[in-house]
């Protein structure tokens, strides 16, 4: 029973969602938007579960003095500080329970929550993102090796597109006369992007969508049910 009823819920909700797509009449017309809003609310409540897991795992590490426990303590403190700042003085657009506290904001230049966001969070986030510049270089060094016909295609396409989008690449072929324009690197790069690349991406999308339809159907029919866990 503990598994059967939820499976019925999944099935019926799925059927309702699919049929309301085709029924413009009330009340079906607003069901799907409503359910998406429900999802936001349910996951909004659920976020607490994550926070509790984070606190539990980290404080456990601090408690048993696991390796690097000091850092996990700092993680816990950062979490607490951010939550407190948000609850007490609010965010950019919303006031916290202590109001907006103008003096404090004036001294910091912005609300504490926003100050932390701008000066710590944002820098951490964009630096983490910027690591990609390095990794893309090391991946290129290692991966684009002429080894087989397939890997040659991979490498040539990458180099052509890369060159075609830079100033230097453009100047390689700038001397070619107008009649040979189709050999200009930027044009070759565009050709590669517009046709073969587009074809492959399109096919990936189409077949993945079929996979999604198949998986969704298996879920609705209760064939794929591992997400519900065990029990009877």
């Amino acid at each position: 029973m503990k598994r059967f009823l939820p499976l019925m819920v999944t099935f019926f909700i799925g059927i309702i969602v699919i049929s309301s797509e085709f029924i413009p009449h009330k009340p079906f017309s607003s069901i799907n938007a409503g359910l998406e809003n429900w999802f936001l609310i349910i996951s909004g409540f659920a976020i607490l579960l994550g926070q509790i897991s984070l606190i539990k795992v980290n404080s456990n590490k601090v408690y048993i003095k696991a390796e690097n426990w000091q850092y996990y303590l700092i993680g816990l403190i950062s979490f607490g500080v951010m939550v407190l700042c948000g609850i007490l003085w609010g965010t950019q657009d919303a006031n916290g329970i202590l109001g907006s506290h103008v003096d404090l904001s004036k001294w910091l230049g912005s609300k504490p929550f926003v100050y932390l966001f701008d000066n710590v969070y944002q820098h951490l986030s964009s630096t983490m993102f910027a690591l990609l510049a390095f990794f893309i270089a090391s991946a290129a060094y290692r991966a684009f090796i002429m080894r087989s016909f397939e890997s040659n295609l991979l490498m040539i396409a990458a180099v052509v597109v890369m060159l075609g989008r830079t100033t230097i690449g453009t100047s390689f072929t700038a001397w070619l006369p107008q009649g040979w324009r189709f050999l200009h690197l930027p044009d070759v790069a565009n050709f590669v992007m517009n046709y073969p690349t587009n074809a492959a991406q399109r096919a990936i999308m189409i077949s993945a969508a079929l996979g999604i339809v198949g998986s969704s159907l298996r879920i609705l029919l209760g064939i794929e049910r591992s997400y519900l866990g065990g029990g009877d």
Binding site: A140, R142, F144, I145, M146, M162
Partner: peptide
């Protein structure tokens, strides 16, 4: 960009 292309050449 030049560096990355050089890296590819070196890798090869």
């Amino acid at each position: 960009h030049i560096l990355i292309i050089l890296f590819i050449v070196m890798g090869n």
